[in-house]
Amino acid sequence: MNGTDEGISAWITVNFLIGSLKTAGSNSVGMLDLGGGSTQITFLPRVQGTLQTSPPGYLTSLQIFNRTYKLYSYSYLGLGLMSARLAILGGVEGKPEDGKELVSPCLSPSFKGEWEHAEITYRISGQKAVNLYQLCASRVSEILQNKVHRTEEVKDVDFYAFSYYYDLAANVGFIDAEKGGSLVVGDFEIAAKYAVSPPVCRTVENQPQSNPFLCMDLTYISLLLQEFGFPGNKVLKLTRKIDSVETSWALGAIFHYIDSLNTQKS
């Protein structure tokens, strides 16, 4: 299953669990997922301008439960959190650095260590400099430049966010690690700036070695959401379960498969 199909299946899961697929005209919610290698965004556009200006490959027709939905759904391969880390560090997927040390302002200046990604081990270290957050944000912006399609409608759609969005929010205490919760997009930027305590980029617990990527990850998520078009005051819901049911794309995929079989029989 490709990333776009996962995004659509996750959209089905969430909207089924909140009941928006049961009644025609019910307001659906959007879905944001941030994995290690890719990130997905899926929602049901209600503004004609979104349908008219979306690039090729961003709109897909979904038939399920005797209804047809024209979804905006796209998977950005290479913009998952782990792939983004490597790009921010200056590495290249699948290419060992042959002992070269990757230096980044998004890591604590005192940090030196190793990081394994896709079965390759990289030597990494922090950069000694002032204005670390600005330097880190500038580097992340370079990675995201012209990579993400922005749509104005997302600011008016309710969204659920999953995977690393959830993990990072729980890590810095914005949501309960078990129950989830809500936050505004701007909270990620606040946390990223808090993780930068001049002159060091640190974790919330002031222990750089425990999570040397915290500053980088929070900065990346903050700027990624802004690139999608989310304003700082936009509320996101983060959860792993709705009515005690896991919000996994697998449930939506099963529904879609069963529904397609019924359609073929009829």
Rank of each mutant, 00 (worst) to 15 (best):
N2S: 11
G3F: 00
E6V: 15
I8G: 06
A10G: 12
A10S: 14
N15Y: 05
I18K: 09
S28M: 15
M31Q: 12
S38Q: 08
V47N: 15
V47F: 13
L51P: 02
Q52E: 15
S54P: 06
P55W: 00
P55G: 00
P55K: 02
P56M: 00
G57S: 05
G57I: 07
S61P: 03
Q63R: 13
I64D: 08
N66A: 15
R67S: 15
T68I: 14
Y69E: 12
K70Y: 11
S73A: 15
L77A: 08
L77F: 09
L81V: 10
R85N: 07
L86E: 10
L89F: 05
V103D: 09
P105D: 02
C106F: 09
C106K: 07
P109E: 03
P109K: 08
F111P: 01
G113S: 02
E119G: 10
S125G: 14
G126H: 03
K128S: 14
A129K: 14
L132Y: 01
Y133G: 04
C136Y: 00
C136G: 02
R139I: 03
R139F: 03
S141R: 14
Q145F: 11
N146Y: 12
H149Y: 14
H149S: 08
T151E: 13
E153N: 12
V154G: 01
V154K: 05
K155V: 10
K155Y: 01
Y160M: 07
Y160D: 05
Y165D: 08
Y166K: 07
L168Q: 14
L168K: 11
A170P: 06
G173L: 11
I175H: 00
D176A: 03
A177E: 12
G180A: 03
S182G: 03
G186Q: 10
G186I: 11
G186H: 05
A191D: 04
A192V: 05
A195S: 15
A195I: 02
A195R: 02
S197M: 11
S197Y: 11
S197K: 10
C201K: 08
Q207D: 14
P208H: 07
C215L: 06
Y220K: 05
Y220Q: 07
Y220D: 08
E227H: 03
F228H: 14
G229V: 04
F230W: 05
F230Y: 07
R240E: 13
R240T: 13
V245Q: 15
E246T: 12
T247Y: 04
W249L: 04
A250V: 12
L251S: 06
I254N: 01
Y257R: 13
T263E: 15
